[in-house]
Every structure is written in structure tokens, then in C-alpha cells.
Design a binder for these strands. Sequence first.
DNA 1: TTGAAAGCGCTAACAT
DNA 2: ATGTTAGCGCTTTCAA
Lengths: 338, 338
Amino acid sequence: MNDVAAEAGVALKTVSRVVNHEPGVNTATAERVQAAIDRLGYRRNDGARTLRQGRTASIGLVIEDVADPFYSGLSRAVEDIALGHDYLVFTGSSGESPTRERDLVLAFCARRVDGLIIVPAGDDHEYLTPEVDAGIAAVFADRPPGTGPEADTVLCDNTGGSRAGVHHLIAHGHRRIAYVGDSPSIFTAAERLEGYRQALSAAGLPYDEGLVAMGPVDQGRVQADVERLLNSPDPPTALFTGNGRTTVASLRAFASFGPGGRRLGEPHGADVALVGFDDFELADLLKITVVAQDPVGLGRTAAELLFQRLSGDEDAPRRVELPTRLIDRGSGEVRPGA
Amino acid sequence: MNDVAAEAGVALKTVSRVVNHEPGVNTATAERVQAAIDRLGYRRNDGARTLRQGRTASIGLVIEDVADPFYSGLSRAVEDIALGHDYLVFTGSSGESPTRERDLVLAFCARRVDGLIIVPAGDDHEYLTPEVDAGIAAVFADRPPGTGPEADTVLCDNTGGSRAGVHHLIAHGHRRIAYVGDSPSIFTAAERLEGYRQALSAAGLPYDEGLVAMGPVDQGRVQADVERLLNSPDPPTALFTGNGRTTVASLRAFASFGPGGRRLGEPHGADVALVGFDDFELADLLKITVVAQDPVGLGRTAAELLFQRLSGDEDAPRRVELPTRLIDRGSGEVRPGA
DNA sequence: TTGAAAGCGCTAACAT
DNA sequence: ATGTTAGCGCTTTCAA
């Protein structure tokens, strides 16, 4: 900027005025400065700018894993809204590691992002208190924060969605419904289990622990659990799976049984009904009934909330819950013994 | 930092030394400074730091769409490598818009990212020349740059992969093979069409324009093209689809034909064979034979190349081509008229 | 309409 | 082992 000023024969401040399109610059002067800018290939350094201005026009997004379609949909929504506000986005995947979540968040804070959108991996967020006190806005998405500062939170209606999905199976005559889900330590998994219990209870059905299989979502564990459930003396006639990856793992388990084995519910000639929490690509072709969440809505809402805060909103922290939607595709509309 | 210095009764520079774990500070002094830091809740401002140091320890990643599984896999790989080097990542989706690609890249450059990884949407990259001249490293991924500065480029072996996929169909007896793909203006689409031609030519089969359907990947267009092809007087016995989204759209087209219509190739009782370029989740359950790319490898390689540049490598720009892998799953191993 | 000076928060280079 | 000074590139404030 100094060089440009020298080249154009004006003061530094005049260059700054031209670069920022501030009013009150003589057209001729402005042209002279612009010419110097072009000649020298000058481009403003936004880092220096934000240092002086005290805001960086950037936000940090910490999710579980960008490669997971649920979070990548959320990411895209956050990105679009941020870009619409002329903000840039730092993205980082925690991979369910609380340490990495914290490191990422603190690294973003050290860069003085104006705001954060966090899908928490851990449940201790005390580390955020000084940052929030220092003025960094934070919004939690998909899961609520643990200990630490109060903050806006956007969630799906996990319990309600799960209740609706299980109710759907009950309405189709099922009495023994298994729940296969993620580790109970994960917030959403616990909430969805609660919805399962509520639906059973509302229908006067007993809660049978033997029908509940929760744990890490890897093919081996899910497959073993599904096999064990179906081979038990009094097997379930329906499965409710607690998240997208579990649903897919269960489908692979069914596929592995081969032509002579148990088959997955289909409108014609099925033997086990299935409803999955969370929609996924090709669920339509596989005719899987699901309780759909809205990852894009989650990201959009979180980002909108954040930008409200950034424009000065000082109200009490909000908690928003987005509705889910049951999509009938066949696998959930099979009656027991059909 | 000034406040901390005052609180601890030392000079600014001593605080800086403690914060950066520079050697040569008396243990007692360091402890006093650390206590002041804790008392005041001081956290270093990395923005100011990078301004002074001349490097930002951040890179910019511009892809087509984070929500696309191919690019989200690539993203995750880039993220992991960047974080391993203590770099932060700005991410942005261009949505195939050359303007948005440019705006994102230039915004990243204005923040003085040290490097860029770009999946180009446009083919004019002249706008990058001043940035590269100014010392910002750039690596192109998935597609080569158009006009503009020379830069490292990491691609898939599009032509070779496509040739292998079509050859696979020919080896199973097919003589009339349709190619359904993305718009020919997209680099990868053109390359894959070329592989298709090469495979036909190598087998002495004619290239029939009537069997080629390229265009935007929306369900309506793909479906119309697939229907037109299959209902033509001399229909193809096999389909080669040019990317993941086209494959999925084609599968939906087949599904829409209903029980009495044409069916997709399966090992038993099929009538149209299918091989798709690009693997996708659940392709295994749907038994779709694919030519798999390696999005994670693409991201990893691009990031590694970039960090080599950032650590001073000044060699001539490199062009890396990653191999593809044919995965037999059934849909591509059906013989004509089976 | 234009400019001079101060300073955002930090580190590099050079004292002491 | 510690401190001083200058300056990264910009904007803010105030003056002309």
C-alpha cells in the first residue's frame, strides 16, 4: 500500500480509501491510484485489515467427519450462509475425539474467528468459557454442549422421531421390535433409545433389554448383533436402527445371510421389517423406510443463529429442535410373519 | 501481551518468549509470566503473529461441493494432512461456478493463505498468475487448470479407467455399449468418453454417436436418455455410466420402469449390463460393477504435494495420475441376452 | 478532498 | 537472561 501510494504520488490513506471504496475521493485521484494498483499488482492484505478492525469475518466449523454425508450436508449449508455474509469458514473434523475437538476449537479461537459452530465430540466444554467471555460467539449443532458456557443449540427431534418410527412398526402389528444403535454414550443414540421406550410404553408393550443392541458402528459388531437377535428363541419381527451407518451395516448383515437366509422386509415376501433413523442416498431404491433428519436445515439454522449473534443479538441462549419426517418406502410396512 | 508483561513485571519480549516456549528464560521468570497469563486469561493472537511472520499456516481448499461424497472424502484427506502440519483449512464449494471458484480463491489469497488446493470449475485461471507470482503455492486436483500459471496437478486415470470398464463389458460379449455421462465440457467427462472410444476401437467395434448420451446430471435428463437408448430399434446390451451421480440416476431410471420393464443387469435373469465410473456407498448391496476412483488418495496426494512446495520444493510442476480399480459386483458380468 | 500519526498484537534483530 | 526498537500492512482518528 505504501508502494502504491508512492507510485501514485498520494498518501497511504488515499490508497486505503480507494481500495475500500470510501466516498470523498476525487475521481481523477482515484483513477490515478487504481492505475498504480494495477501496475503494481497490489492486493489488500485482509489479515492486516482484520487485525486492525478487530473482527476477522471468519467462522470455525467443527464437525465429526466431513466425509459423513450427514455432516457434509450440514457443512455445505453453513458454508453457503457464511459466504452470503462475506465470511470465510475454517473447517475441521474431530473424528469423535474430544481432544481433537478442543484443539480445533482453540486453534480457531487463536485465529480470532468471530464465531464457532460445533458438533461436540466431548461433553466438557469448560475450555470454551474464556473464549466466549472474550466475545467469540458459539452455536452447538446436532448435540448439546456439556459443561461450560450456555450457548445456542440446534438439534433434531431425536426422541420424537424415534418414537414415530417405532410407533409406525407397532401400527403395522409388530410387538417384538429390536433397537440397534450407536453407543449409548452418544447423545443422539440415548435420545433415540428413549423415543423407542416411549413408543413401546405408549402401546403397552414391555421393554425387553434383550432386544436392545447398542455399540460402536462397525460392520462386525452390528452384524453379530443382528444375527444374534434374529437367531434368538423369540426373535424380533422388526428392527429399528438408530442412525444411518447402523442402518447400512444392518442391510449388509442381511445381504450376507444369502438367498436362503433371513430376508429384509420388502412389500412382497419379506420376513423382517425395518425402519431406520436418518435418510441416506439410495434408500429409495432399496425401499427402506426411514425417519429422515434434515442436515441442511440443521446447518442453516445454526449458521443463521450464529449470524444473528454476530449482528448483536444478546438474548438468552436459544434451543431449537428441528422436526423429523417419516418416509414410507416399503421395509417398514411389512406385517409380522408376512 | 502488554498487560501480561505489566502484570508479571517483565518486558513484552519475555512474555513472547514464554508463550512460544523459546529457550533462554529463567524458570522462575517463566513461572511468574505463566501465572500472569493464567490470571489474565491471555491467549496469543495468531492473526497478529502471522502478520509479523509472513506466513499464515493456513491453506485454502476449493472443491465443487462438500456435500458430494467424492469431494467430501477428498476434503477429509486434505484436512487430516493439513492438521498434521499444524495448518488450518479454509473450505469453499464452487458449485461448478467459475465465478464462485475465482471469488473463493481470491478471498483465500487476500487472507494470505500459504497454499491452495483447487478443483477447478472454470478453465480460465489467469486470475491466479499474480497470486502465484506473489508466492502462493497452488495444486490442482481432479481436473487440470486451464489457462494460467503452471501448477502441480493430481488426476485420476480417467481414460485408462474408462477403457478398462468398457473393455470389461466387451470381454463379456457386449458389442453395443452405450455411454451415458456428464456434459462433455467437463474435463473428466471428456476423458472418460475418450477411454470409451479407445476400448471400442481396440476391439474393432464402431463408434456409434447414437449410443452416446452426455449432458447435465439431473434425473430427468438421464432418465430420458436411458429410456430413449433402451427403446431404440437396435438397443445397447450394456451401459457404461460416466460418473457416480449418473450411475445412480440410471439406477433410478431402471427402477422406474417397474416390474414389467427392462431390468438392470444382475447375475441371474438380467437383460442390461452396467458398469459405472466411480464407486459409491451401497454399490455393493446393489451389486453394481464399478471403476473405482480414490478420492482420499487424490486429496492426500494433492496435500502432500502442496506441503512439499511449502517446504521449499522448487522443481518443475508435477502431474500425478492415480490408478483406478475395477470392482466386479455382478451388474457388469452379465452376457448380452442373458 | 487529502494527509499525518498512532496503533491493532505480535516477532525479528539487535542491544544489554 | 532480559529488554528495546522497529515494523508486518492495514484502519482509525484527527488535522489541514
